[in-house]
Nucleic acid binder design. Structure first.
Lengths: 182, 182
DNA sequence: ATAGCGTCCGAACGATCGGTCGCTAAACTC
DNA sequence: GAGTTTAGCGACCGATCGTTCGGACGCTAT
């Protein structure tokens, strides 16, 4: 995951990875069968990390707006802390494979779809409870939140802008309604 | 540019490109010197396309909000029309090189910075004219607009969601203030 | 006529790519 | 304790990687 987050899933090489692990190429390939098998395993492992770092920590909050808010904060924090040396692996993989067919693309897409569906679901719940600004559309909300996180990721990784998390939090607050004053 | 937009700047290979062009590898390398030279040329050419397709068409509008609105519409349309078979090359390159040092990263970064500065500048002008919703921060606005376009790009390329442009336009309208009723 | 330049070629370089093969040695099963 | 599975090894495969080299061709300017 560390190598793939920097070099990309295609730049992750059997020979290099085997060296890093102190294995022979054939020894490494014994575990994954092929490069594609390795890529799929990496995507699955990265999704597991995402669930552990973002989904799980927020799952303690009440469904609807509170959980949605916690999920966004965990998401921002996850990007800010940079779980992998090259930033969010799934984001990079999504861009790298978005034009290529095959199981890797499917896997990345499935992960993204599941997460966006979860956001939408919490949004719907919040809307039904009247916790969202009037006229809020959960599907649009998921789109907007995705944009915030992609912008945050780019400003962090490419621009190395330390202000980015603040901007992301502001954007989320605007989308979900300003935080209640403490 | 076509190959690089799908396979990435690293996946763009001397041998393959030479074949596509009906050239020998050495004949091709004569023009660019090295693979890095080729990558830089591709980034520069993609930036030129972006200026022609997005910056130029909007430059006829009055500075401030009208031009900003036109720039956003041109941006959305550019992503929607998919100038390259693999979507926006600069977006892909930004993710691919965001963790790598070197001239290619610098070139991509410079292009992004210039464009975001232009957005911020038009935003400032619009704010001074009072054309923006109260309390609007041009820097924040540039961040938010970047997010909208990155989300649009991802929903188009990865999810292949035909609704994405509509969502992007809605998001832009919200950020810039709803369009005046016709 | 000549010199120079830009374009392109084929051949070759060492390195690395993903992947296969047959083997060994340890671990587990019955 | 025999048999089977598992993990890993080294050697090797054809293909491709980026790059270098010497040279050929056509054009232009001197």
């Amino acid at each position: 995951m560390a190598v793939a987050s920097v070099e990309g899933l295609e730049g992750l090489t059997i020979g290099r990875l085997a060296d890093d692990l102190g294995l022979s190429k054939s020894g490494l390939l014994g575990h994954f069968g092929s490069k594609q098998g390795l890529q799929l395993a990496v995507v699955e492992a990265a999704a597991e990390v995402f669930r552990r770092e973002v989904v799980a920590p927020a799952s303690g909050n009440a469904p609807g707006l509170p959980r949605l808010r916690a999920q966004c904060e965990a998401w921002i924090s996850y990007l800010e802390r940079a779980a992998f040396p090259g930033g969010c692996l799934l984001t990079a993989a999504a861009v790298e494979f978005d034009d290529r067919d095959g199981p890797v693309r499917e896997a990345v897409l499935a992960q993204q779809d599941a997460w966006l569906a979860e956001l939408r679901s919490q949004g719907e719940r919040a809307a039904r409870s009247g916790d969202l600004p009037a006229g809020a559309d959960p599907e649009q909300l998921a789109f907007d939140l995705l944009g915030v996180m992609l912008a945050l990721n780019q400003r962090l990784r490419l621009h190395r802008d330390p202000e980015a998390p603040r901007r992301a939090r502001r954007a989320v607050d605007r989308l979900l309604g300003a935080r209640e004053p403490a």
